[in-house]
Amino acid sequence: MARVTDAPKVVTANRLQDGAVVWLTAAGDWSTRIADAQVQADAAGAEAALGIARASAARQEVVEPYAVDVAVEAAGPRPLKTREWIRAAGPSIDAIPTAA
């Protein structure tokens, strides 16, 4: 999973208390919106951001932080892998079954 690539990266994790998907911002805190994520242009930047995320995990704020490859678009970063865009956007299906 942690293959090193040249793509820009954002750092993500799940919030400990509720499991919500969160993204590391430029201010070093977490947002539930990927649009707020700070994009790291290179591996060194991503490694520094992961250091901040791991410190946060050690404070029981999040679990399992890792970096995600993204494309930078007008609306903000968009994860390259299907798994990650589904994590960012929520299930691709109507989460509530439609009762007649």
Binding site: N14, D18, G19, A20, V21, E64, R83, I86, R87, P91
Partner: peptide
């Protein structure tokens, strides 16, 4: 042991 997993979006 108490059936609680962490999935993509939540527990």
């Amino acid at each position: 042991m108490n059936g609680l997993y962490l999935q993509l979006h939540a527990y």
